[in-house]
Design a binder for these strands. Structure first.
Lengths: 312, 312
DNA sequence: AATTTCAATAAGTTTTATTGATGATTTTTA
DNA sequence: TAAAAATCATCAATAAAACTTATTGAAATT
């Protein structure tokens, strides 16, 4: 049994197709077929059920794949140990970021990080929290930036900053003339929300429901981006909530629509998250350092109340 | 990087010698040298310091060895998964047993186990608790039978039975005419003990000290076997304590010297112990089943007080 | 029925692991 | 201190393996 064989098994299991898996592994299809057959012969057990189309794992196959993933990941750690010893910070690093953090935070730290750690090849992907968790678990992401706490045992979190919620209240809205807003003022029925799948949406819902519960959750207006929410709000379709960093990009003439919360302001906790196996920890810490350093200048709220990003 | 290379590294680390390690791996010495060099080249780091005699691990080398052991052990689990799926109970199984359990328990269950599971190749070794713990951790033992609790996070315990302590008190001893003995009657100064390293010795010391503490622990008479303790005791050199199963082998004419304790009798807890990784769990459970079944007929004490086997 | 898809097989090539012989050093022994 | 033994590295040769290209066979699709 070799690590390569296990890696091939993982590729076939993921792609449910020998030919595609072979491409991913940069070998020809017969190579994969033969190596997997060899492993199956040695173990004297079928890992894949080739009669099904697309190909499926057998029951034992599923267990073997879980263990194979474990072994392959642990094998990466050997290089990791060496890198750590040498203080080497480099190599490919796959980072996920949720959509409501991506456009504001990424431009703030990316240049600085690349400059400080030029050997790291960052591959950044915008993904929902759900996708991020799945990909951290299966090893397709090395780390991610998301709202926390996630309450997941296999995932570790390191808080980067607290980002308060800010109300965006257009003229003519019942709350427009309030200087400061209180969470208890909120009503989910005139709140513009992001589409399903955004954890910021869930945060807003949790915040609103903390004071008033509404059984008929038929939200009418939803959007995929915060930019659009602001525009919809300007049209008089309701108020909305923004994460603090987004308020820095609001047009000057719209600034008057921003209403801050009474302290402790509701806020989301933004963390860098990673698998508990702590692979590539040097790079994770390097990211944390750079982001924390930059954020200290831009955002420094302490007296906040964390709102859970999880759907209830 | 291959599992074989990691296995070679482990062998050299253990034997501190390429030639011996090669023999253990059933390959020639150049094979080991070259494969390990190849791995070192690939990682671009020295794993072994060859200038020292005998050979030593470098600092990174130590970390790599820990991880390599992890990977190699996890690779064994794949075969384990297959065996489990097939309900196959067989293969080599290395079992350790402490000296004070070996001679009484082994004859009771060995035949029955071999008959029930003929495909298992049991390799049984008599070892002290300390040696057992080390060998379970480094994978040289699959399981062991020892007195518990051991208070070790990496080791799991499954209790097989409770074995009471029985006093052996020769004629002429101050306690010889007591029908039943109480723990508070014991005095470590006229107690014959096993040599250092036996956990039963530590159990006896813990029991005696529970009532009287003696700062001057200069035991005079010690022996390596319980048989010898009985003979010494017959010579009038003091009393001693026996594990219950040993009393079944005392000569009839010496039976009068056996004095049982008042309930709850002090006892040791005897367990089958294994690494938390739970490798070869089918065989461990098979052993547990056979031993528990046999012991149920021979020993069934419940109202006992467990004495720790750990040195204080 | 013809075409496409996809894994298995066959044959040949390249790469890799292993061996046996040997050499260079160091350690042990006489 | 010199000889012997032990020990690891190196080299060339070989056996084993992994991999490739070409092809086949079986389903699935058109």
């Amino acid at each position: 049994m070799t690590i390569t064989q296990l890696y091939y098994v993982l590729a076939v299991a993921e792609n449910q197709n020998f030919t595609k898996a072979a491409e991913k592994c940069f070998v020809t299809q017969p190579t994969l077929s033969m190596q997997i057959q060899k492993l199956e012969d040695q173990l004297d057990v079928q890992i894949f059920d080739r009669s099904k189309k697309p190909i499926e794992l057998t029951d034992v196959g599923k267990k073997i794949v879980t263990q194979a993933r474990n072994i392959v990941n642990e094998s990466y750690r050997i290089q990791d140990i060496v890198d750590q010893q040498k203080g080497f910070i480099g190599g490919e690093f796959k980072l996920g970021i949720i959509p409501t953090i991506m456009p504001t935070l990424l431009p703030m730290f990316l240049k600085a990080f690349i400059k400080k750690h030029p050997k790291v090849k960052l591959k950044i992907e915008e993904l929902t929290t759900e996708e991020i968790i799945a990909r951290i678990k299966d090893g397709h992401l090395d780390a991610a930036i998301a709202a926390t706490p996630l309450e997941d045992d296999t995932i570790r979190e390191r808080v980067l900053y607290f980002e308060p919620f800010v109300s965006y209240i257009p003229e003519g809205h019942r709350l427009h003339n309030n200087k400061k807003i209180d969470a208890s003022d909120l009503d989910i029925n005139d709140m513009l929300l992001l589409e399903d799948g955004h954890c910021f949406r869930d945060g807003v819902i949790n915040l609103c429901k903390a004071f008033k519960d509404h059984s008929d959750d038929n939200f009418q207006l939803e959007s995929g981006s915060i930019e659009t929410l602001i525009k919809l709000s300007n049209e008089g379709l309701g108020m909305t909530l923004l994460p603090y960093l987004h308020t820095l990009e609001v047009h000057d003439k719209e600034k008057k629509n921003l209403h801050y919360f009474n302290e402790p302001a509701p806020a989301r906790e933004v963390s860098i998250i990673y698998h508990k196996s702590e692979l590539k920890m040097q790079i994770i810490e390097a990211l944390q350092d750079v982001i924390s350093g930059i954020i200290r200048g831009a955002i420094a709220f302490q007296n906040v109340q964390i709102i859970s990003p999880l759907p209830r």
